[in-house]
Amino acid sequence: MTTPPVSDRCTQRLRHHMARQNLPSFRQLAQQAGVSPATIRQLRAGQAARCRGETLAKIAIALDLTVDQLLTECSELPLTRPTPAPAPMDPSDALHILEPWLLQWPTVVAAVTKNPDLPASKIIPLVKPLERLLDHWQVKAIAPIGSEQPYDPTIHELMDGTATPGAIVRIRYAGYYHGEALLYRAKVSPVAIGSAQG
């Protein structure tokens, strides 16, 4: 039995994963991952090992795969040949990389929700794989943006004004737990007594 060419095998496997993510074309895969069409052509040709790690990670997230899976399925090397696997990323290292997104993204989503005409609304679906990854890692927000809670200095950080423990504050930037451990305190502002009652 003849083995199909590398490009046919890689293209077929990419199409399979794209179908699972409702991506009907390679152009849409490139847009979803935020990479160039030339990069997708490189994958289809079995040259995944020549792509930058950051680029492979974007495509892997778009396809809900690991980078190792993507390398295995889009490599010109025989699948039976052992290839050195990169050391697994420690969750704390990955969370450090994601820190700017963790702190800023919920605020962006809240702004877009209030004004759906903002062009940014188009990018919200693009981060669903990242949200699944955080859920898999048991990373949970302390509270939704804009919600009000009794002030607890152990999980809240005041951005302005003063508040005594138990006073009502509004969540302005998300804080996070990793399982039971606190990762980042939520940034909050005091709620005026009149507005809290109203």
Rank of each mutant, 00 (worst) to 15 (best):
G179V: 11
I193E: 10
L77C: 07
D90M: 00
I97P: 10
I123T: 04
I155V: 15
Y184H: 14
P125Q: 07
P119M: 02
C74V: 06
D152K: 03
P144M: 11
L79F: 12
P86Q: 04
T39N: 05
P150H: 14
G46C: 04
L126Y: 13
G194A: 12
L65A: 02
V188Y: 01
V127F: 06
P4L: 06
Q31D: 15
M159A: 05
P86A: 15
I171R: 00
P116T: 07
D68C: 09
D64A: 06
I123K: 05
A120I: 03
L71N: 01
Q197I: 02
W101E: 02
T39R: 04
L134S: 12
M18R: 05
L126G: 11
L126F: 14
R50Q: 15
P129M: 03
R44T: 07
K122I: 10
Q197K: 00
K114G: 12
H178W: 15
N22C: 15
V108E: 03
P165R: 05
D8S: 13
I142H: 10
V35S: 03
A196P: 00
L182P: 01
D90Y: 06
A62Y: 08
I124K: 06
L79E: 09
G194Q: 00
T154A: 14
L70V: 10
T164C: 01
A60D: 00
S36W: 05
A57P: 00
H16V: 13
A143E: 05
I193G: 00
G53D: 06
V139T: 13
Q47M: 07
D90T: 03
T80F: 12
V191E: 03
E131F: 12
S36D: 11
V6D: 09
T164S: 03
